[in-house]
Design a protein around this nucleic acid. Structure first.
Length: 416
RNA sequence: GGACGAGUGGGUGAGCUGGCUGAAACCACAUCCCUGCUAAGGAUGCGUACGGGUAACUGUACCGAGAGUUCGAAUCUCUCCUCGUCCA
């Protein structure tokens, strides 16, 4: 959530930053106005309430002293009606403000390049060069089916499009990758955490998926519960409404979960294969830290994800997202894109974001900084999306006869 | 699924026959004093959020969540959630 005090104190700066992200000035004006109105409404309610409280005290006094209370009671009753009205107004203003504030995205860091969409993202660096093929490399779904690893038809039969079933080495590789990644992350100091795959509304509001993106989530019927779209949600909300001891920071976590997404906005995109599925495996990194160290941690996370790909010998590049491609809660994001020779392009396999205190403010995650409580910074990133890693292994390690070489680092996990 | 019991500040835990309780006490923590040695003792401070004030200070809200009764609720009523224990 946006810092309302900052909006009030430094409106021009906030609007300058948010306009880069496409928030129009009008919306900010109405936010500012809503905030002012709420303050006024609160002030008048509180004045009335203070009066009511003091009269109530007097009331008790009178009774103890056995004085006549009829006159006082009349005054108190009259005030009660006025208060009810004032409270009602205050509530309306509160609601209006919250609705506005919750819908405003995070401010991008100044270093984030301006841009409309993913075409304006900036490549930071390439790691490993794509291999030269002496034959026409195939796309992963072909390879997957040829090798009997993945069954898209039966996935569709069971659950519809964008679902698949894995067999034998396909299934084993998924499992190996999850273990490999978790261990890799653990060696970099990320503690492994296993979390629920369903969460309540509060958690999703905390990380920013709600209220804006309810259409992308699978909701449990009859309950206020949702399947998680990413482990970021439970991992970050672990600390929701907590004051974390100073010495516990930074908290570095890694966790594996399946992720569940409706992909409502992606109709027609990546319909074949396992690039975009409704349910996919992902190993996630989440960090909670002080603002002073959040940039350092951010770089550690990017490096960790990139190094996993390097260990798997997969060519990839780091891309800094422009303002137009930045997610709702992110102040800054670096994507890692893996080379897919079958598709002849780089595709996203990890996205690492610093949300600064945006999520912390929503989820009320703080630490004690000397005397006062301060919002933490939260960061999240994939390390990595398992399905897409499998895709990358298939496409990059394919041989002319359709067989696929297993990366060396995975062999111990496959008992090979 | 049924029957009880519980949910209080960073922690333990009083209050729960409605006003003097935003909340005792203890622990933890912070600062200071004393002392000087692998100890201890003493003083003071110490919940959160939002608002007013240069400041001292002050207003409002919050005792699992929401609603209600009342001039007034942590304390009474209802609903829900969570956690225990017993039964099935």
């Amino acid at each position: 959530m946006i810092d309302l005090k900052l909006v009030q104190k430094d409106f021009d700066e906030v609007s300058r930053k948010l306009m880069r992200k496409g928030v129009d000035a009008e919306m900010l004006e109405s936010l500012k106005e809503a905030n002012e109105e709420l303050k006024k409404a609160k002030a008048s309610f509180e004045t009335l309430q203070a009066l009511q409280n003091s009269m109530s005290k007097e009331f008790g006094q009178y009774k103890r002293e056995g004085k006549d209370i009829s006159e006082l009671k009349a005054r108190v009753d009259a005030n009660k009606i006025v208060i009810a009205e004032a409270l009602d107004i205050q509530r309306q203003k509160q609601e209006a403000l919250e609705k506005l504030a919750m819908a405003i995205p995070n401010m991008p860091d100044d270093e984030v390049p301006d841009g409309e969409n993913e075409d304006d993202n900036v490549e930071l660096k390439k790691v490993l060069s794509p291999r030269e093929f002496s034959f026409q490399p195939k796309e992963h779904w072909e390879l997957a089916q040829e090798n009997g690893w993945i069954d898209f038809e039966r996935g569709a039969k069971l659950s519809g499009s964008r679902f698949s079933v894995s067999y034998d080495m396909g299934a084993k590789l998924e499992r190996a990758l999850i273990n490999f990644m978790l261990n890799f992350n653990a060696k970099r100091g990320f503690h492994e955490v296993s979390v629920p795959h369903m969460v309540n509304r509060t958690a999703l509001e905390g990380t920013g998926q709600l209220p804006k993106f309810e259409n992308d989530l699978y909701k449990i019927e009859g309950q206020d519960m949702f399947m998680i779209p990413t482990a970021e949600v439970p991992l970050t909300n672990l600390f929701q409404d907590e004051i974390i001891p100073y010495e516990d920071l930074p908290i570095k976590m890694t966790g594996y979960t399946s992720c569940y997404r409706k992909e409502a906005g992606a109709a027609g995109r990546d319909t074949r294969g396992m690039i975009r599925q409704h349910q996919f495996h992902k190993v996630e990194l989440v960090c909670v830290t002080k603002s002073e160290t959040s940039d350092t941690i951010f770089n550690e996370m990017v490096e960790c994800a990139s190094d996993i790909l390097t260990a798997l010998e997969l060519p990839h590049r780091l891309v800094q997202l422009c303002t137009g491609d930045l997610g709702f809660g992110a102040a800054k994001t670096v994507d890692i894109e893996v080379w897919l020779p079958g598709q002849n392009q780089y595709r996203e396999i990890s996205s690492i974001s610093n949300t600064r205190d945006f999520q912390a403010r929503r989820a009320k995650i703080r630490y004690k900084d000397g005397k006062k409580n301060t919002f933490v910074n939260t960061l999240n990133g994939s390390a990595l999306a398992v399905g897409r890693t499998l895709v990358a292994i298939m496409e990059n390690n394919q041989n002319e006869d359709g067989s696929i070489d297993i990366p060396k680092v995975l062999k111990p996990y496959l008992e090979m």
